[in-house]
């Protein structure tokens, strides 16, 4: 297969073209959209979604779905927020500013593991289980926090600094963290045995155990990673916005993440999807979100756009699976 042909059939190329076309179209009306400043705005919009999208992508590749990540994000952010708020009352000293990072990741991983256990041990559909835990984790967030917000003054300034101070080129740490997670996910999925097994399970869940793949173990790991990354996104939420609210933090987040993943060409039927595609999907979503205020479209229309984007991506996915982009026949997965 020639290089051009490969490019045409690759999903990632299509998304990249869409990003370029979209930016040019917006730039034609609002020239300030095509500046470096605007690029920074876009990049600052996406880290949380990108981190969670890496976990969600693995889950969807394994032919499951995780609807609870928004609530997982909220709960793990709240645990860390409370740690900062009440550390003197509980332990008698101020915890160092970075404590929240491992705490949130571990808490998130725990919640993800619970999802995985319910799904794998009882053979339940992920969508229903995570719909239940979506509500469950959100309720727990209210309970532990007594329905009170963790205000700005309790979040350590070093933590908030992760989204403001920059090591190079005026690019805050949080963006490097997001791309670091994406790189790690790439290495895990492409260059480890378990990473490849995730694809094998998603492609054919019946054949996977016959090939000696420990499906239970792999599925548990996948959901634990998804939870852990939602937890990481949780502590970065506190860093980015400087507060943790029991009802707002992470609410509706799962739909943005699923939208990004599905645009990125990850097939909802499992077994298909790449880190590069997901990253591009996240960036496309970021471009759309950044263009809305410039075009004078009110922020209230964001949810509708995410929904429409999910549906359009589904239809594209279906068409591409049938005939490839530009009419090139593609092998049926």
């Amino acid at each position: 297969m020639s290089l051009i042909r490969t490019l045409l059939v690759r999903r990632e190329a299509g998304i990249a073209v869409m990003i370029v076309l979209f930016c040019l179209a917006v730039g034609a009306f609002r020239p300030q959209f095509l500046t470096l400043d605007q690029l920074r705005i876009i990049l600052l919009l996406v880290p949380l979604i990108m981190i969670a999208a890496m976990g969600q992508m693995m889950v969807i590749v394994a032919r499951h779905v995780d609807l609870s990540i928004g609530s997982t994000l909220g709960f793990s952010a709240m645990v860390s927020g409370m740690l900062y708020r009440f550390d003197v009352d509980w332990f008698g000293f101020d915890v160092p500013w970075w404590t929240g990072i491992p705490v949130s990741i571990v808490v998130g991983a725990g919640l993800g593991l619970v999802n995985g256990l319910l799904i794998q041990l009882f053979r339940l559909p992920a969508i229903i289980v995570t719909l239940g835990t979506l509500s469950l984790y959100r309720g727990l967030t209210f309970i532990i926090s007594n329905a009170k917000q963790i205000d700005r003054q309790w979040i350590p300034s070093e933590l908030k600094g992760l989204s403001q101070t920059s090591p190079v080129f005026g690019t805050p740490w949080i963006i490097f963290i997001a791309f670091g997670v994406a790189l790690a996910t790439y290495l895990f999925l492409m260059h480890t045995r378990m990473g490849r097994q995730i694809y094998a399970i998603g492609s054919n869940p019946v054949a996977a155990p016959l090939r000696g793949i420990k499906v239970t173990q792999v599925t548990l790991v996948v959901f634990t990673i998804s939870g852990a990354l939602a937890g990481l996104a949780g502590i970065l939420y506190a860093s980015r916005w400087g507060f943790v609210n029991p009802s707002n933090t992470g609410s509706g987040f799962e739909f943005q993440v699923i939208a990004a993943v599905v645009i990125g060409g990850v097939s909802i039927n499992g077994g298909v999807g790449s880190v590069l595609g997901t990253v591009l999907g996240v960036l496309l979503l970021g471009c759309v979100a950044a263009a809305l205020p410039l075009l004078g479209i009110p922020g209230t229309s964001q949810a509708a756009i995410y929904g429409a984007v999910i549906l359009v991506a589904l239809v594209i996915d279906r068409t591409v699976r049938r005939q490839g982009i530009a009419g090139f026949k593609r092998v049926q997965p």
Binding site: V65, L67, I127, F255, I258, A259, V262, I268, N269, P298, T300, S301, Q302, A303, A304, I305, Y306, G307, A308, I310, L311, L314, V315, R318
Partner: peptide, 20 residues
């Protein structure tokens, strides 16, 4: 298309339109 994911999309879309 699988109804699970379609209706997740339309769930977001319909409520978003209501918000508009």
């Amino acid at each position: 298309l699988p109804s699970i994911i379609v209706t997740i999309g339309t769930l977001t879309l319909y409520r978003g339109l209501a918000q508009i």
